[in-house]
């Protein structure tokens, strides 16, 4: 029997994800990867992994995992568990111990394991694309009884480490977007509505996208285009006028006009959106997107410099 992490309860939608699959969109394979890539990087930092090491992403409801190796060091990041498990602080579990994560306060929590999972990359990545059964653990979300194989069977002997705090969540701040690429397919009122009012994330929310409900975004012409390239964060608007924000398991190309696209620095925040969350959008110039990303990377570097032993 494989030794590793035995899944006793799988949670709602738990998959192995790294920072995404690159280079296969031209074959129709989406990037996938962590909904909140910043959280995955921080979890890896705390257990001493490279930032892009694959971890376990758990959407809304965490898994219950039993350790079946002699010892294992782990760290949680992203949406914090509502129980008393710490985030951004490593802990070492012994054989037989159970990590019960339970409900998490946000869209996605990440579990990094020291050394990483003993899984085979598919098309250069360990990210799971469940729709096509690619990558991760058997290409799918976890189920009770699965055993995630581990590269290390004993934790390293160093002290536990922690970060002082997560990056500021900035929940109430609007998501910054660059308008377009199909800006000319929408009326002026559509832009006023997009940038003026809030949109609620509906229950139709998964790793492919978030369907929003709010003021109708009116097209200036037909609500379809000949398919063109998609990107994570793109806000596409079908004929209903109710937008869908695309997430990492999106199609590589799509036939709905895209009114705006969320900037890279705000994708982690977007990825944490839960049904019921109200999203607001703010238009920025590409140069501002660049400054925002540089600032975010500086904040991550400053935080990483405060990694300390406990």
């Amino acid at each position: 029997m494989t030794l590793g992490l035995l899944v006793e309860e799988a949670g709602l939608f738990s998959t192995v994800q790294d920072l995404g699959r690159q280079g296969f969109q031209s074959l129709g394979v989406p990037p996938s990867g962590a909904l909140d890539p910043v959280a995955l990087r921080l979890a890896n930092l705390v257990v001493g992994n490279p930032p892009g090491c694959a971890g376990l992403e758990m959407c809304r409801l965490g898994a219950t995992l039993r350790v079946t190796v002699p010892s294992l060091r782990v760290a949680l990041a992203g949406a914090p568990p509502t129980g008393d498990l710490p985030v951004l602080r490593s802990l070492t579990l012994r054989e037989g111990e159970v990590l019960r994560i339970g409900r998490v306060a946000g869209g996605a929590a990440y579990l990094a394991v020291e050394g990483g999972f003993d899984l085979k990359p598919v098309l250069g990545s360990l990210s799971t694309y469940a729709r096509a059964l690619i990558g991760g653990f058997e290409g799918r979300r976890l189920e009770p009884g699965d055993v995630l194989p581990l590269l290390r069977h004993t934790a390293s002997s160093r002290r536990e480490r922690a970060l002082p705090h997560p990056l500021p969540a900035e929940r109430d701040r609007p998501l910054r977007v660059v308008l377009g690429p199909q800006a000319d397919h929408f009326t002026e009122e559509a832009f006023d509505a997009l940038l003026g009012e809030g949109f609620t994330v509906t229950a139709e929310a998964d790793r492919i996208g978030l369907r929003l409900s709010g003021p109708r975004l009116a097209h200036a012409g037909p609500p379809e285009i000949a398919s063109d390239g998609n990107a994570t964060g793109a806000v596409q608007v079908p004929g209903s006028g109710q937008p869908i924000v695309l997430l990492p398991d999106r199609h590589t190309v799509g036939g709905y006009p895209k009114i705006a696209t969320v900037i890279t620095a705000d994708l982690a925040r977007l990825g944490q959106s839960l049904p019921g969350t109200v999203l607001r959008f703010e238009a920025v110039a590409p140069e501002q997107a660049r400054i925002a990303l540089r600032r975010q990377e500086a904040e991550i570097a400053a935080l990483a410099a405060r990694l300390h032993e406990t």
Binding site: V177, V178, L179, G180, P181, Q182, D228, G229, N230, A231, G233, A234, K258, T261, V262, I263, T264, P286, A289, R290, L293
Partner: peptide
């Protein structure tokens, strides 16, 4: 066409 800050579409 700008597709956010991380992609450009040449149409």
């Amino acid at each position: 066409l700008l597709l956010g800050d991380a992609a450009l579409t040449v149409e």
